[in-house]
Structures are given as C-alpha cells and as structure tokens.
Amino acid sequence: MIQGRPASDEDEYLNEWSLNSLKENLTLINDILRQLMTISAAILGVSIFYEKIITNNSFKIAAISTFFVALILSFFGIIPYGSKIITNDPVAFKEQKKSIFKTKYWLAIAACFFLTAGFAIVIVHLIDRF
C-alpha cells in the first residue's frame, strides 16, 4: 500500500499557479500575435502605398516581402486550434495546451524576426539613399 501526505499550502499554491500560468500565457501569446498582425498589416500598407520612403524597387520588394511574411505568420498564429481537444485525460490535455503554446510562440518569434528584417531593409535603404 502506498501512503502519501497531503499537499502543503505552498504545494497547492504552486500547482494552481503553474496551471494558471499556462492559461494566461496562451491568452498573452494570442494578444501578442494579434498586435504583430496589426503592426505588420499597417507597415505593409505604408510600404506599398507611400512612395517616398522606399524609392528603390529592389529594396521595396524585399521590405514588402518580409512584412507580408510577418503578417502571414502572425495570422496563422491567431487561427484557433483545429484539432480535437482532449478532455478525458488531464495530462494529455495539458501537454496539448503546451504544444499549442509552443507553436504560437515560435510563430510569434518568426513574425518578429521578419518584422525586424523588414525594418533593417528600410534602414539600409535610407542610409544608402543619403
């Protein structure tokens, strides 16, 4: 027979905190992806329609491409999870949520990378122009 001890108040607090952290992190990463999508769309629009910022076509195509990729990545990040949610196994449910978070996290990192690359292209063009 296996005997255990009741969880201490600190153990219960830490367990509840870890469960809430995962929920809060999913909400936070979704908000970040929405903001990245908004920023990417705005900068993409400015890059396409405002002719005075990027005058060289090669730089313009490169910048527009990177901003568009950032937009697409952030869009894919905010799409709701399309697979069946596991509800009958708490451990599998938690692992599924961790996997969803990890995917959204890497999409946000990639979107940030492409946004930064687009800004770098614009800055290089502006430095080259003057």
Rank of each mutant, 00 (worst) to 15 (best):
M1R: 08
G4K: 09
R5S: 10
P6A: 12
D9N: 10
E12W: 01
E12T: 06
E16W: 03
S18K: 13
L19T: 05
K23A: 09
K23P: 00
K23F: 00
E24H: 11
N25S: 11
T27E: 14
T27K: 15
L28V: 01
I29R: 02
L33R: 05
M37D: 02
A41Y: 06
I43N: 12
L44T: 13
S47A: 15
I48C: 05
I53G: 04
I54V: 15
T55N: 12
T55K: 15
N56H: 10
F59M: 04
F59S: 15
I61L: 10
A63G: 01
S65E: 05
F67M: 12
F68A: 15
F68C: 08
L73G: 01
L73Q: 10
S74Q: 06
S74Y: 07
G77Y: 05
G77E: 04
I79S: 07
I79N: 03
Y81S: 04
G82P: 02
G82T: 03
S83F: 09
K84T: 13
I85F: 02
T87K: 14
D89Q: 05
K94D: 12
K94F: 09
K94M: 11
K97P: 01
K97H: 02
K98V: 02
S99T: 11
I100K: 06
I100T: 03
F101W: 12
I109H: 05
A111V: 05
F114D: 08
G118F: 07
F119I: 09
V122T: 14
H125A: 07
H125W: 02
I127T: 09
I127H: 08
